[in-house]
């Protein structure tokens, strides 16, 4: 059969879909406590791990976690990256100045929390660096009330 004539039509759909997610009781309390400049984690009664952000189930020992503990506000950088780009709706855009992203082990927590470290030359960002949380003031009753981290002391 001869090569078929090919007519390809490109369609763009002119609407985006919006979703409304319930955050659930764990994140609800976490956000509320941020307003009081407290970072609340949840502790597993089985293996004793303390995770932040808090959630319902410990995957390791399959328990429902229900013991709230305050962690931070200081912690240690355990892993980091310097972004020379950012992603905006999936498209790469140059980041000038570069952005920092660190995994921070808050004092008292066993998990690492992702956050931005400001007030430091990205070249000086290192594992082991002590940082402290900086809160939005006044609080906006939102996840971003924990705004960023900066070098401690």
């Amino acid at each position: 059969m001869a090569e078929q004539e090919r007519i390809v039509v490109t369609a763009v759909v002119p609407l985006d879909y919006t979703y409304n997610y319930r955050v659930g009781p764990y994140l609800e309390r976490y956000i509320q406590e941020l307003g009081g400049k407290k970072i609340m984690a949840i502790k597993c009664g089985g293996c004793g791990k303390v995770v932040v952000p808090p959630r319902k189930v410990c995957g390791e020992c399959n328990r429902v976690m229900d013991e709230w503990v305050e962690v931070g506000p200081e912690g240690t950088v355990e892993n980091y990256t310097v972004g020379h780009v950012t992603l905006n709706k999936g498209l790469i855009e140059p980041a000038d100045p570069p952005v920092t992203l660190a995994l921070i082990k808050l004092d008292g927590a066993t998990s690492f929390l992702a956050g931005e470290v400001r007030g430091i030359d990205p070249a000086d960002l290192k594992n082991g660096l002590r940082v402290k949380a900086v809160f939005t003031d006044p609080a906006e009753n939102s996840l971003t009330d924990l705004d960023h981290f900066e070098p401690a002391g």
Binding site: Y19, V23, L27, P53, T81, G83, L87, L101, L143, T144
Partner: peptide
């Protein structure tokens, strides 16, 4: 996680891979 990570925007395909 749309209630946390997607709200904050720290984690994405490239930043997590870099970590």
């Amino acid at each position: 996680n749309p209630t946390y990570d997607r709200q904050l925007g720290f984690l994405n395909e490239l930043s997590t891979a870099a970590l």
